[in-house]
Amino acid sequence: MTIHAISNVAIFNGRNLHPPGNLIFQASPGDILGVEAEARDLSGINAIVEGSGCTLLPGLIDSNIDTAAINRDLHIFASYGITTVLDMSSTETEIQAMRAEADAEPGLPSYLACGPLATAEIAHSNQFYPRRENKIVRSPAEAENFVTSGVNGPSKADYIRVLVDLPGIDSEILTAIVHAAHRHGKLAVAHAIQKIGYSRALEAGFDVITLIPIDGLIDADMANRLAARGTACIPTLCRARALAQLLLLEGVESASGIDLNFDYALANVKILYDAGVRICAGTEANQTSNAPVSIGESLHDELELLVRCGMSTIDALRAATVVPTLVFGLDDRGVLSSGRRADMLLIEGDPLQDITATRNIRKVWISGIEVEHWEGIGG
């Protein structure tokens, strides 16, 4: 068994920052063997990385990507310290290709996905996702079939995703999809860029909502109700910003008379955060949609945007580490402690003092395997 150590390093374990110590892990591939607060003799260790002046973080999690199976996307995510990705938009064919790549090559990020997005016959999804794979759901019976085919079909859905904005699926059918997802032991994820979408997701009982409204402010009472029932939110601010810019350029706001503004997105995250809603960091990283978002680097943008919204730096880091593991049931990662996967990110500086320090990447490990060929994004 090959044993490695990172010495004299400040450790953000997914929940809190601890003073400099040592982390011992098994390599190629492996788990964390121990986190030690005090100095010790490391002479029996196979390889030691000096971590003075650095902070060790759990590998980052991007909770909303749209890779479209572009060649080497997983390698790019890894190079930016992202060790787990949750695909919310790709097609069944793309998902099969990405799963095969992730399984075949050690040291790549873990890949989870959902398959087609459930929509109504008349929906905004074609405007926002002209290249994506949607599936029309017209009745409660079709809701059951949609979930069953998603879980057992080619995409092997890890969760179920539904467009809840208007015009869209009837409320009765939304509730039927949620109940079907839960019967299959899957989370129900709502896609909503409208205020009304958040209200509809709450009433239907969705577990997670992706994106954040850009058409006005969320009601504080609704935010409190979301927090009370444990609903999580993936604001996906990078995507909301790109989408708001696109709609402005296309004149959608002036044509519709609706006030569409990215400032609403920023304010809405603060409303949800203040209410105690669990926030996960996600980007909808993609290079194929009408509003592209950079692969990998955008998660560091997202952390900075979360802090800009008013989240503390420690909660922004939690949003990309421990919180999504709790929301999506990924119990083997997101925290640096004995027995967890050695998914880790070593950066120069202290991200609790300056969130942009997450860009100063020195090393990345995925399940104990060091990511070797990566394009640096910091100093």
Rank of each mutant, 00 (worst) to 15 (best):
A319C: 09
Q96A: 14
R333N: 04
E304M: 01
F128E: 14
R15E: 15
V269I: 09
I196H: 12
H124R: 14
L299I: 02
P140N: 11
T175F: 00
I70Q: 15
A100D: 08
A69E: 07
V178T: 11
D207S: 13
D103I: 00
T55F: 06
E372I: 11
S199F: 10
A357N: 14
H184L: 02
A190I: 08
I136H: 06
E121H: 07
I65G: 08
L86Q: 10
L117H: 12
T2W: 04
G329H: 02
D315E: 15
A102N: 09
S125Y: 12
G376A: 12
F77C: 09
D31A: 05
G185R: 05
E375G: 02
D66W: 01
G230W: 03
S89L: 11
P324H: 05
V49H: 13
A227M: 02
P154D: 15
R131S: 09
V49K: 12
R161E: 12
A232I: 05
V189E: 09
C54I: 01
I70A: 13
V269G: 07
I24P: 00
R340T: 08
N134Y: 09
A220S: 10
G53P: 02
L60D: 05
L243V: 10
N134Q: 14
D263M: 12
R132C: 07
E101S: 08
A291D: 00
A123N: 14
I279A: 09
S199W: 14
I279E: 13
V9A: 03
F128W: 03
G251F: 07
S199I: 06
A227W: 11
S155N: 15
P106Q: 02
H300W: 02
G59F: 00
M344I: 05
P351M: 11
P213L: 04
S294T: 07
L346R: 10
S149H: 11
A5K: 09
A357E: 13
E253V: 04
L260M: 07
P130L: 11
P19M: 08
T356V: 03
P130I: 05
A204S: 13
A342C: 03
T358E: 05
S28R: 09
T313H: 11
L174Q: 13
L260C: 07
F12N: 10
E50H: 04
I218W: 03
A275I: 03
R183C: 02
T288P: 00
E92Y: 10
P106F: 12
G282V: 04
I369V: 06
A47P: 00
M98G: 06
V327T: 12
F128D: 14
L246W: 14
E92T: 12
I366F: 10
G310Y: 02
T2H: 06
A192D: 08
S338T: 15
S312I: 05
N152W: 05
Y80I: 01
F206H: 15
I95S: 04
A232D: 04
T321H: 05
G329L: 02
K156P: 01
N152C: 03
T288S: 03
L346V: 07
I279F: 13
